[in-house]
Simulated scan of single mutants.
Amino acid sequence: MNTFRQNLFRNKTAVVCASILFLVVLSAGFAPLLASHPPTEMYNEFRLQGISSQFLLGTDQFGRDLLSRILYGARVSLIVGLASVAISVLFGTLFGLMAGYFGRKIDGFIMRIMDVLFAFPEILLALAIVAALGPGMFNTILAIGIVNIPVFTRTVRGAVLSVKNMEYVESARAIGAGTGRILFREIFPNVTAPLLVQGSIAISGAILTESALSFLGLGIQPPDPSWGGMISEARKYMELAPGMIVWPSVAMIITILTFNLFGDALRDLLDPRHRK
């Protein structure tokens, strides 16, 4: 653990990305304190206003403060990203452990279901689920969580196949350890590295999918702020108030790119094959 911590601090990409993510999480968590105006409060006399001392990033078509809406939109994106990936990790880990360890019919049954889910483009499958369940934050989280389960199932299954016949697993079987103990005390701790890497990258994908759903009107519903919803609303006012589309786009790009780069840095730290 100490060696990993030392390598983490030596990796400049990881340190920079972790610092940016910390600031994003901090901004989202303290949005009520940092926001100068309520995110849904309308100031009709200041509609489509540019940068000013009163509205640091300007206002939208209803006179709502863009900075406040971006801060609260960050909260929405992080909640959706983390919660949906948590669902994916939970079920993907369980299915991957069972498929990789038991093999044969169980492996075939689970992986054929995953293949069916993989056959659909991610955004189309998420759209179908949200359309069936209805828009809203909970259904968006559930839809994105279901869509990402096959990725984690394959990741964990591959890791289990590589370690299930190792000597320490055979030793646990020889002393009469039960299946549950072997899976969760012997195998699972040794497959967490690829799980962490895939999880950090999946968060960025979940944020992007949530933004796409909100952009299409099937994710977070107005007047609640969402980066995708803000970009969708800004299409009609790009020439009058370009900041409406620029600032939420910049916030989303920085967050997604940082999660991706942090995932790559984790991969380099945790996988010896990628170390330079």
Rank of each mutant, 00 (worst) to 15 (best):
N2A: 15
N7D: 14
L8E: 03
R10K: 15
N11I: 04
V16C: 07
L21W: 15
F22N: 08
S27I: 15
G29Y: 07
A35F: 09
M42Q: 13
M42W: 04
E45K: 15
R47S: 04
S52G: 08
L56P: 08
L57H: 08
L57F: 15
G58K: 06
T59Q: 01
D60W: 02
L66E: 05
L66D: 05
R69K: 10
G73Y: 02
V80Y: 06
A83F: 03
I87F: 11
T93V: 13
M98Y: 09
G100P: 04
G103P: 00
R104M: 11
I106Y: 01
G108E: 08
I113A: 04
M114G: 02
D115S: 01
L117R: 05
L117M: 13
F118N: 10
F118V: 03
F118D: 01
F120G: 13
I123R: 10
I123H: 05
L124W: 01
A126E: 10
A126Q: 11
L127W: 04
A128V: 14
A131M: 13
P135H: 08
T140W: 11
A143Q: 09
G145A: 02
N148L: 11
N148D: 10
I149T: 03
F152H: 12
E170Y: 01
A172P: 07
I175K: 06
G178S: 14
T179K: 11
I182Y: 07
F184Y: 11
V191L: 14
Q198N: 13
Q198S: 13
I203H: 10
S204H: 05
L208A: 14
E210H: 12
S211E: 08
S211L: 10
S211H: 09
G217D: 08
M230I: 10
M230C: 12
M230T: 13
S232W: 07
E233Q: 04
A234F: 13
A241D: 02
P242L: 12
P242N: 12
P242F: 11
G243P: 07
V250K: 07
M252I: 13
M252E: 10
L257H: 03
L257N: 03
T258P: 06
F259R: 00
D264F: 04
D268V: 00
D271T: 09
